[in-house]
Computed example of a mutant assay.
Amino acid sequence: MKLPLVPTIIVTVAIAVMIALGVWQLQRKAEKEALLDRYERAIDLPTIAWPETPDTDLLYRRATGFCIEPTSWRATAGQNREGEVGWQHIAACRAGGGEGPGMQAVMGWSRSPESPGGWEGGEVSGIITLDADHGLRLVSEDPAPGLAAVARPSAADIPNNHLLYAIQWFFFALAAGVIYVLALRRRLRG
């Protein structure tokens, strides 16, 4: 039996690529585990001042910043410390000398997305987390008046799905090989 050259090359290359992607996902799994471990240890490091420029190396560190005044509020979905779903309220603050990116401070939780009133700024102590729009945010340990405490950020909430992705790629490679062998057998019978 003579194998068809072009289809065999295409399937072989595809299987090799899928296996390489599976191996890459296994490497990513190890990298992600190291990153999550670093985040878990960060909570025990000494408290730092709110950084003037966003630095993801500071994620999950305890920090203290000063909100000169909230310039605006926004609400995003979130949970309180009891696990209830609602809205976390984030104040965009003028910080430091009033220059630079300022500070995004999660000041509490409520059932309503309506902006809270009454908090006019001050010292904020909490944990640094990612903010999709602004790089970093500070999740306040103590809520602003009229709000409940937000669920404490935890690196344990970050998924590490790389093992599942690797299994998928290896399965796809196996499936491609089985399908190709079945196609060759059918061709032989014909």
Rank of each mutant, 00 (worst) to 15 (best):
A166Q: 11
P116F: 10
L59S: 09
R152I: 10
A75T: 13
I43G: 05
I167Q: 08
W73K: 05
E40R: 08
P46R: 03
H134M: 05
S154T: 09
R187H: 12
A63P: 01
A92P: 01
P46C: 00
L5V: 15
P51T: 00
L3V: 09
G122H: 08
R38C: 03
G122M: 07
K32G: 02
V106Q: 03
E82Y: 12
V178A: 13
D142T: 15
T12N: 02
W169T: 05
R74P: 02
G121N: 10
T76H: 11
I19L: 13
E82A: 15
V11W: 04
P143G: 03
K32M: 15
F170W: 12
D55F: 00
L147S: 05
R137A: 13
L147E: 06
V124K: 03
R152N: 09
L188H: 03
R189D: 08
W87C: 06
R187L: 12
Y60I: 10
Y60D: 07
W119P: 09
I68L: 13
A30Y: 00
A34C: 01
V11C: 12
E40L: 11
L130R: 07
A176K: 01
K32I: 14
Q168P: 06
S72I: 14
P145R: 09
D37S: 14
P7K: 06
V150E: 10
H89L: 13
A166L: 07
C67I: 04
T47P: 04
H162P: 01
H89G: 12
T56W: 12
H162D: 00
T8N: 14
A91Q: 15
A173E: 03
R41A: 15
V13P: 04
A105V: 05
P113L: 14
Y180T: 04
Y60V: 08
L164A: 14
T64G: 01
W109E: 10
S110K: 09
A156R: 12
F66L: 10
A14F: 01
R74N: 03
D37T: 13
I9D: 03
N160L: 04
P153V: 03
P145E: 14
Q88I: 15
R61A: 04
I158M: 10
T53R: 06
A105M: 10
L188D: 08
E141R: 14
V23Y: 13
I10M: 10
L136D: 11
V139W: 05
M18S: 13
A16F: 04
L58H: 03
T8K: 00
A16T: 12
